[in-house]
């Protein structure tokens, strides 16, 4: 289990990370979401012991990172944003070197390296110089390095950035598979990635946590009210009055005027009632035809956008 409490990282006057607290349960895949510069990499660098925090506490299975750095580092496999590769080594040499750095007993090194290479499908490239590998393969080698020593916790900083769509899917599949046995924290700014692999999401912006929940709850919670976007032809005043009178409708406002093609009304409703039929019938009866009606539920993208723009200004 990873417990992060009141983590603060200051660079001069700038708070890169400002009072972040959350826990990650064993076997959980936690998505760390935020725009560029939100403090994702900083948090990960602190968690893995690369840089120290200004104040706060991070415990991995009860061990505090600054107090027992070596114990914690042994439990964590880290893939930084830029994979830490030695260009002058072959894949195999590099992985053996990393295994030795991680103090894996000599007898287990070959097995561990083979396992990691198989999982990341780089066995065929084991004798190539890392310098000559493509970006995707370099990423895989960096990933394989993080797996050595079978650490309980994997910290992956934007593991799919810069890969082609097929590679992204493949890496996600691997992360999902690893998630069955490891606790994983992965950062990203890609929404699909979160819904695809994460059990829970932490959204941070400007060093603050703006939301923690499962991807599903986050969608539901933030769009806790239903929303409809309805295009109606008819005088604005009457249409508004007509819709307002209906039960289950919380508010109505005009969003765009399409001229002869009517006006678009944004209708917020109670989440548990489907008012589409009522609205349609009521407007039809009043003689104002409904041209278009669509659900305006927020996607994860919109939630993210909302939280990290307006939310950040608070």
């Amino acid at each position: 289990m990873i417990e992060i409490s009141h983590l603060i990282k200051q660079y001069g006057d700038i708070h890169a990370v400002n009072d972040i607290s959350f826990t990650v349960e064993d076997g959980e895949v936690l998505g760390f979401l935020g725009p560029n510069g939100a403090g994702k990499s900083t948090t990960m660098n602190i968690l893995t012991g690369f840089i120290p925090y200004t104040s706060g506490e991070i415990r991995v299975n009860g061990h505090e990172i600054m107090e027992e750095p070596e114990a914690v580092k042994k439990m964590i496999g880290y893939l930084p944003e830029i994979p830490p590769l030695y260009m002058d080594m072959t894949v195999k040499e590099y992985l053996f070197f990393a295994a030795e750095l991680k103090k894996i007993p000599k007898a287990q090194r070959a097995g561990q390296v083979d396992m990691a290479m198989n999982l990341l499908k780089i066995t065929d490239h084991s004798h190539r110089l890392i310098r000559n590998l493509s970006k995707g393969y370099k990423q895989r080698v960096g990933f394989a390095q993080a797996l050595l020593g079978n650490p309980e916790v994997l910290v992956l900083d934007e593991p799919t950035v810069g890969l082609d769509p097929n590679q992204i899917l493949e890496i996600r599949k691997i992360i999902k598979k690893l998630g069955q046995k490891h606790t994983i924290i992965l950062s990203t700014h890609i929404m699909q990635e979160v819904s695809a692999v994460c059990d829970r999401v932490v959204i941070i912006n400007k060093g603050h946590i703006v939301a923690i929940d499962t991807p599903e709850n986050l969608s539901a919670q933030l769009s806790g009210t239903g929303a409809l976007s309805v295009t109606v032809i008819g005088p604005e005043k009457e249409v508004l009055a007509c819709v307002r009178g209906l039960s289950g409708v919380r508010s109505v406002k005009v969003s765009t005027d399409k001229g002869d093609n009517g006006k678009v009304y944004e209708i917020v409703t109670d989440s548990n009632v489907d008012v589409r039929k009522t609205i349609s019938l009521a407007l039809g009866k009043a003689g104002y035809p409904v041209i278009e009606m669509k659900s305006a539920d927020k996607s994860l993208e919109e939630i993210f956008h909302e939280l990290t723009t307006e939310g950040g200004k608070k």
Binding site: N45, T48, G49, F50, E70, K73, K74, I76, Y78, P80, I82, P83, P84, L85, Y86, M87, A98, L101, K102, K103, Q145
Partner: peptide, 14 residues
Amino acid sequence: KNGTEVLLVTSPTT
């Protein structure tokens, strides 16, 4: 320069 420092520092090697 190459960012490999991360590997050295975050491994249990001092």
